[in-house]
Deep mutational scan, measured.
Amino acid sequence: MIINNLKLIREKKKISQSELAALLESSRQTINGIEKNKYNPSLQLALKIAYYLNTPLEDIFQWQ
């Protein structure tokens, strides 16, 4: 199971779900699903999230 700190990191950087979704060329619903652990992002999307949040991938997503 993958757990994530996306919501915590996103809020700390003062970025809304909609703003992050626009940067990622994704939907706000996708970001919401990832944050609620209802959806696991593809590797490509996970890497883009890490890039746009300027945060190491392993700080956002962790195996448990």
Score class of each variant (00 low, 15 high):
residue 1 M to W: 06
residue 1 M to Q: 05
residue 1 M to I: 11
residue 1 M to D: 03
residue 1 M to P: 10
residue 1 M to S: 05
residue 2 I to K: 10
residue 2 I to V: 12
residue 2 I to G: 04
residue 2 I to W: 10
residue 2 I to C: 14
residue 2 I to T: 10
residue 2 I to S: 08
residue 3 I to W: 07
residue 3 I to G: 06
residue 3 I to S: 08
residue 3 I to E: 07
residue 3 I to H: 07
residue 3 I to N: 06
residue 4 N to L: 10
residue 4 N to P: 02
residue 5 N to P: 00
residue 5 N to M: 08
residue 5 N to F: 09
residue 5 N to G: 03
residue 5 N to D: 03
residue 5 N to E: 03
residue 5 N to Q: 04
residue 5 N to Y: 08
residue 6 L to D: 02
residue 6 L to H: 01
residue 6 L to S: 01
residue 6 L to F: 00
residue 6 L to G: 03
residue 6 L to E: 04
residue 7 K to S: 07
residue 7 K to V: 06
residue 7 K to R: 14
residue 7 K to M: 08
residue 7 K to H: 07
residue 7 K to C: 10
residue 7 K to G: 06
residue 7 K to E: 09
residue 7 K to Y: 05
residue 7 K to L: 08
residue 7 K to P: 02
residue 8 L to T: 15
residue 8 L to G: 09
residue 8 L to F: 10
residue 8 L to Q: 14
residue 8 L to D: 12
residue 8 L to H: 13
residue 8 L to S: 14
residue 8 L to E: 14
residue 9 I to K: 02
residue 9 I to T: 05
residue 9 I to R: 03
residue 9 I to S: 01
residue 9 I to E: 04
residue 9 I to F: 09
residue 10 R to V: 04
residue 10 R to M: 07
residue 10 R to N: 01
residue 10 R to E: 03
residue 11 E to Y: 07
residue 12 K to P: 01
residue 12 K to L: 13
residue 12 K to F: 10
residue 12 K to N: 10
residue 12 K to C: 12
residue 13 K to W: 09
residue 13 K to T: 06
residue 14 K to Q: 12
residue 14 K to P: 02
residue 14 K to F: 09
residue 14 K to A: 10
residue 14 K to C: 11
residue 15 I to R: 03
residue 15 I to F: 08
residue 15 I to M: 15
residue 15 I to G: 02
residue 15 I to E: 00
residue 15 I to V: 09
residue 16 S to E: 04
residue 16 S to L: 06
residue 16 S to N: 06
residue 16 S to M: 05
residue 16 S to H: 04
residue 16 S to R: 06
residue 17 Q to N: 03
residue 17 Q to P: 04
residue 17 Q to R: 07
residue 17 Q to W: 05
residue 17 Q to S: 05
residue 18 S to C: 12
residue 18 S to W: 12
residue 18 S to M: 12
residue 18 S to G: 12
residue 18 S to L: 11
residue 18 S to Y: 12
residue 18 S to D: 14
residue 19 E to L: 10
residue 19 E to G: 10
residue 19 E to Y: 11
residue 20 L to R: 01
residue 20 L to G: 00
residue 20 L to W: 03
residue 20 L to Q: 00
residue 21 A to N: 02
residue 21 A to D: 02
residue 21 A to R: 03
residue 21 A to W: 06
residue 21 A to I: 04
residue 22 A to G: 11
residue 22 A to R: 14
residue 22 A to Q: 12
residue 23 L to K: 11
residue 23 L to G: 09
residue 23 L to N: 07
residue 23 L to Y: 13
residue 23 L to P: 00
residue 23 L to S: 08
residue 24 L to F: 02
residue 24 L to E: 00
residue 24 L to C: 15
residue 24 L to M: 08
residue 24 L to S: 09
residue 24 L to P: 01
residue 24 L to I: 15
residue 24 L to W: 02
residue 25 E to W: 07
residue 25 E to Y: 09
residue 25 E to T: 09
residue 25 E to D: 14
residue 26 S to L: 15
residue 26 S to I: 15
residue 26 S to P: 01
residue 26 S to F: 09
residue 27 S to P: 11
residue 27 S to K: 09
residue 27 S to G: 06
residue 27 S to A: 06
residue 28 R to Y: 11
residue 28 R to D: 09
residue 28 R to F: 09
residue 28 R to A: 14
residue 28 R to S: 12
residue 28 R to Q: 14
residue 28 R to H: 09
residue 28 R to V: 15
residue 29 Q to G: 11
residue 29 Q to S: 13
residue 29 Q to V: 10
residue 29 Q to I: 10
residue 29 Q to D: 14
residue 29 Q to L: 10
residue 30 T to K: 10
residue 30 T to C: 15
residue 30 T to N: 05
residue 31 I to L: 07
residue 31 I to Y: 01
residue 31 I to V: 11
residue 31 I to T: 01
residue 32 N to T: 08
residue 32 N to H: 11
residue 32 N to P: 02
residue 32 N to L: 09
residue 32 N to Q: 15
residue 32 N to W: 08
residue 33 G to W: 14
residue 33 G to D: 15
residue 33 G to N: 15
residue 34 I to C: 03
residue 34 I to K: 00
residue 34 I to F: 04
residue 34 I to H: 01
residue 35 E to R: 02
residue 35 E to T: 02
residue 35 E to D: 01
residue 35 E to M: 04
residue 35 E to G: 02
residue 35 E to Q: 03
residue 35 E to A: 03
residue 35 E to P: 02
residue 35 E to S: 03
residue 36 K to Q: 15
residue 36 K to D: 13
residue 36 K to F: 06
residue 36 K to W: 07
residue 36 K to T: 15
residue 37 N to G: 15
residue 37 N to M: 07
residue 37 N to T: 04
residue 37 N to Y: 07
residue 37 N to A: 07
residue 37 N to W: 10
residue 37 N to L: 07
residue 37 N to F: 07
residue 38 K to C: 13
residue 38 K to D: 10
residue 38 K to Y: 13
residue 38 K to E: 14
residue 38 K to S: 10
residue 38 K to R: 13
residue 38 K to L: 15
residue 38 K to I: 14
residue 39 Y to K: 10
residue 39 Y to S: 07
residue 40 N to W: 13
residue 40 N to R: 15
residue 41 P to G: 04
residue 41 P to V: 10
residue 41 P to F: 05
residue 42 S to D: 09
residue 42 S to W: 05
residue 42 S to P: 12
residue 42 S to L: 04
residue 43 L to T: 07
residue 43 L to I: 12
residue 43 L to D: 03
residue 44 Q to A: 14
residue 44 Q to H: 12
residue 44 Q to F: 10
residue 44 Q to G: 12
residue 44 Q to W: 11
residue 45 L to S: 01
residue 45 L to A: 03
residue 45 L to H: 01
residue 46 A to D: 00
residue 46 A to N: 02
residue 46 A to T: 04
residue 47 L to R: 12
residue 47 L to Y: 10
residue 47 L to C: 15
residue 47 L to P: 00
residue 48 K to F: 05
residue 48 K to A: 09
residue 48 K to G: 06
residue 48 K to N: 06
residue 49 I to M: 05
residue 49 I to F: 02
residue 49 I to L: 05
residue 49 I to A: 04
residue 50 A to W: 04
residue 50 A to S: 10
residue 50 A to T: 03
residue 50 A to F: 04
residue 50 A to N: 02
residue 51 Y to D: 07
residue 51 Y to T: 07
residue 51 Y to C: 12
residue 51 Y to A: 08
residue 52 Y to A: 14
residue 52 Y to C: 11
residue 52 Y to K: 04
residue 52 Y to G: 02
residue 54 N to C: 12
residue 54 N to K: 11
residue 54 N to D: 14
residue 54 N to M: 10
residue 54 N to F: 06
residue 55 T to E: 10
residue 56 P to L: 06
residue 56 P to I: 06
residue 56 P to D: 08
residue 56 P to Q: 08
residue 57 L to S: 02
residue 57 L to M: 09
residue 57 L to K: 01
residue 57 L to E: 00
residue 57 L to T: 03
residue 58 E to D: 13
residue 58 E to P: 09
residue 58 E to C: 12
residue 59 D to N: 09
residue 59 D to G: 08
residue 59 D to S: 09
residue 59 D to Q: 13
residue 60 I to F: 05
residue 60 I to G: 01
residue 60 I to Y: 02
residue 60 I to D: 00
residue 60 I to M: 05
residue 60 I to P: 02
residue 61 F to V: 01
residue 61 F to C: 03
residue 62 Q to I: 10
residue 62 Q to S: 08
residue 62 Q to L: 08
residue 62 Q to K: 12
residue 62 Q to T: 09
residue 62 Q to W: 06
residue 62 Q to D: 04
residue 62 Q to P: 08
residue 63 W to D: 02
residue 63 W to A: 02
residue 63 W to F: 08
residue 63 W to H: 02
residue 64 Q to S: 14
residue 64 Q to V: 12
residue 64 Q to Y: 11
residue 64 Q to M: 08
residue 64 Q to K: 14
residue 64 Q to G: 14
